[in-house]
Amino acid sequence: QSYDYDEGSETWPFFVLAVLCVVLVPLTLMQAYEIIAAKDEDSSSQSSPLEKLSEKYTGDQVKRFRAKFAPKKSKLLARRNLVIIAGWCMVAFLINKIGSNGAIKDAATLLFDPYALLDISASSTDREIRSAYRKLSVKFHPDKLSKDLSADERTVLEEQYVMITKAYKALTDEITRENYLRYGHPDGPQATSHGIALPKFLVDSSASTLMVLGYIALLGFILPFFVSRWWSKTQSFTKKGIHARSASYFADRLFNFKPSQVVTTGLILNWLSHAAEFKLLYPDLTQETFESLLYDHINRRHSGELETAKLRIVAKTHALLFGLLDIATTFRNLEISTVAIDTFKSIVQATPLTSHSQILQLPNVDAKRFEEGSVDDIRTLGKLFTFEDEKIGKILGIEDETKLRETLSVAANIPHLKLLRAEFTVPGESVVTPLSTPHISVKVLVRSAKHKFFTPNKIPDELYKEEQDFDSLRDPFASLSNQPALPRTFAPHFPAKRSGCWCALVVLQKDGKVIQTPMLVDRLSFANLNKDFDKRTVKDLEKEFNPEEWEIGTIKIPFSQPAPDQKGDYYFRVIVKSTEYFGADLDFTLPMMVRE
Amino acid sequence: LQYNPNSKLLGLPHSSEDVTMNISQINKLTQDLVAETNANFTPQPHAESTAMIKKMFENGLKQTQQQKLADALKSINLAIEMAQRKRTTWEAFAVQLQELQFMLKNRVDLCLVQGRFMDALQDLDFLQNTGLNSSDVFIRKTDALIKLKQYEQARAECERGLSLDPTNVKLKALLIENTRRLAEYNG
């Protein structure tokens, strides 16, 4: 009954050390990995002139907002790091406490290690053991000891000799070896002491009630609190990061959607304004208020004292729109999916969706002048770039020279996708065989609206080639990660800095419905945008066009189901829609020729 | 839920638009039933309504032959309005649907000829929404979209039409025409 406690604090340091290591080692590794990954992320993403211009055109209201709500940069001083540092100090302290603690040391010597005693390696053969024993016993044999040793030295050496003999026996003699292997000591089971790895005062005396209370608090309150908080958090947010109530509202809207409803960005904004996130942020504001704030943002109207509220809810629409897009594609509703992405653009660019959105998304454009002025109805950047610069200035109503230059630079750096080649491919096969797993491989050219147009067949076939080595066959999507991440978007009115993506939708042409959730394209090289290759200056394509200089982007869309089992041609429509800019989309039909 | 005995209508204040819509459907059905004189009615379409609509419609067709297109459009609109109002809610849906689609197809051609492209486009949308995916719907829709300068959508419609009917010559011609316009549109 009478447990002996760990008075000499021999065991509890090991216990605490073990617990600390179990917590610290993974935490440290995770933190280290994160820091390295963050560095790598910065290096891989490409910069673009739009970034600086976006900074320049960002209003101070948005700048203040970003400063206030930006994720805290100082990763190093983050709480987790402090915990790690404190933890390792504790470990160091414990280790030197263990090292300096005598009681532990002599307990350690109790451990019997024949190999150490004969100072041979644990894997030595019998011969080596024998020779080592012979050498040592000659040295330590009592008769061999020199006379002038003092009594206690002599006893130590004799003891040493006894140990060596024991060690030798433990390794050679059957019985003692049996003992050693079974009990760790040749003389059979040693006296082992069982105790509680806690100091006495913690268990016995007054502190014991404290301990009991501590346990009750831990198990009764603290643990349930954390578990319930964690559980309510996971319950209330879907994996797409939107609130469960918002997701169920969107699903309800989609489920009860009537063909007699007209899908416009207004309808999507109305749905967004019902989001639970907004209600959680500003419980006192009503849904109508949220809706009017979203309209204020799109029409670049100031919302007075609700300005911060407006910016906060606009920042939230990012996750909400992706959530809505996911649900819309799950319901296979193409119209709502495409209008949701159009709403995304109009929120990012704070420009309403009209037929002139491509022009109005540019900075410094005087909308009134432009609407009246545009004689031959310019609706695209490509069309805009057919005029000379000063003419463009007049059309857009920009007098100031530098502003015009900046506007033209933004217009020239907005990425447009040009389809070069698209096909269904099955890795390792030349055709799509029945019931195979094809994916859609699209070769695009990221070009500026300013560039001279050239037909895809101007680019020789070898530039399309992709290495057909083993791992690209095993995982065709791996090669996509070689492309740089997208640079920051020119979105001076959007509350947060963003780099956006293209959403790739796949639609079955037979019934015009979406067949899978969108694939987000966030890695493409924008190197071509740095080229001048202006359509107004390049005269004859033959001489000035050199295919090698142009980078070809690759988009790969996984196909959510196996190819049909019957041979034949199945038509799909692929829509690659940007969430950032107007006019940067692709929309083409792609046949899947299933052959034996 | 409140029931108003003299107007014989259901009402539910502050209900969501879905519920309001369902209630108005029930009210409409009740009104038609109350108004019905013939005790043992059947889903067979009323002969006299069909006759009236037919007469109105034939009149429109005659005017089309006489090249009086505006009047033709008017009488076809009248025929459609007649169908919308006269038909009761229990007359066979298939009959009502076919009748409406048939009249709309003619109305589309009249609108296109008279340059009312938006009207034609919306009628074509309606025909597609109600499951009419024949090539000539795609041809007309592509044509209307091109006239309305919506080249991106025109291309999508045309390509979809070609997916369903790859050998259609008119759609191919429209695709080429639209691609040319798109190139010009994009400068």
């Binding site: 009537k258 063909p259 007699s260 409803q261 007209v262 416009t264 969706l353 009209t354 037929s355 | 819509m21 459907q25 409409k28 059905l29 919308q84 038909r87 809610t89 229990w90 007359e91 849906f93 009502q96 649907l97 409406l100 938006m118 009207d119 486009l121 919306q122 009628d123 949308d125 309606f126 929404n129 109600t130 309305l148 300068k149 919506q150």
Partner: peptide, 22 residues
């Protein structure tokens, strides 16, 4: 039938919406 009528009524609404948008 009533849903069909509602969809037919929507034609007018859609005309206005798209006229504005385009």
């Amino acid at each position: 039938n009533q849903a069909l009528k509602r969809r037919y009524q929507a034609i007018l609404l859609r005309k206005d919406v798209f006229a504005v948008q385009w």
